[in-house]
């Protein structure tokens, strides 16, 4: 007869990852330090990949000369307007699709048909329709933001617990009050998750649209630097885009914390 005799070994650990901020910072610092060391030692050809110190110098020069702000301010304006327009219309249609049967099938059919089209491929068409000026760039951004927002919002509305809506109905709340006080707040986590996706899409489309037809903007600046083999400025522009992405993500994180604190 088999016997067991001894202390019981702990076997319930793991599968509970937690954030380590220091590890994230150390990784970034480590990568940059290695990169700098490689460039200084001549292992990395600086003509193709400039050293971090050279990129920092170029960034400083661009800031001091005002060139950075000239380009960045235009990009920020395009990003804000395009994203807001796409988001407002996307939330509107997403709610309509999520709430009304009449709009559900037609709306989702259109979204499903148009969402997979790479929006960058539409930029030339938008330039024909709206001209080479701001219109085509803003429409590209808004169009790119619109569809994921519709899908996120409609999904959020679909997942609102039906019991909460029934509760509102049983207390005689109006249709508008149910949407405003129950459906929208319940769908908000999904809508805000959608913001994370759409803000990244908006930055990608911003750069693409600015590269195809713009005199100013970070995308145009990066393209121009690339054409001149000015890799210091090219990577300085890319660093700005990376920081912009981080900044947008931070703003959305703050928004989530402010609006979803109840979680």
């Amino acid at each position: 007869m088999p016997r067991i005799d001894g202390p019981i070994a702990f076997r319930g650990g793991g599968f509970a990852p937690s954030d380590r901020t220091w590890a994230a910072v150390a990784t970034l610092v480590g990568v940059v330090a290695l990169w700098q060391a490689g460039a200084s030692a001549g292992v990395i050809p600086t003509l193709f990949l400039p050293a971090p110190v050279s990129i920092a110098r170029a960034l400083w020069a661009l800031t001091v000369s005002g060139e950075l702000w000239k380009n960045l301010s235009v990009s920020l304006m395009r990003l804000a307007v395009g994203w807001i327009v796409g988001t407002v219309f996307g939330i509107g249609l997403g709610l309509a699709v999520g709430l009304w049967s009449v709009l559900r099938s037609p709306g989702m059919a259109l979204v499903s048909a148009l969402f997979p089209i790479p929006k960058i491929a539409l930029v030339p068409l938008f330039i024909i329709w709206f001209g080479i000026g701001e219109g085509s760039k803003l429409v590209t951004l808004a169009f790119g933001v619109f569809f994921p927002t519709v899908i996120a919002t409609a999904g959020g509305v679909d997942n609102v617990p039906r019991g909460l809506i029934r509760m509102g109905q049983s207390f005689g709340l109006s249709h508008t009050a149910i949407i405003r006080k129950i459906v929208l707040p319940a769908a908000l986590p999904a809508i805000l998750s959608g913001f994370r996706v759409t803000s990244s899409i908006a930055i990608v489309l911003l750069v693409a649209a600015e590269m195809i037809g713009a005199e100013r903007g970070i995308g145009a600046f990066v393209l121009s630097a690339g054409n001149l083999y000015d890799t210091d400025n090219l990577l300085a522009g890319i660093v700005v885009l990376s920081v912009l992405g981080l900044l947008v993500s931070w703003v959305i994180g703050r928004l989530e914390r402010a609006l979803l604190g109840w979680r």
Partner: peptide, 29 residues
Amino acid sequence: LNALTYVFQDFSLLPWRTVAGNVALVLED
């Protein structure tokens, strides 16, 4: 304000409202 009023098995409270907010929900407008 509501002649026939339910109390639900699963409570049906709005998690984004406080206790007072959940009660106020049916009175506010």
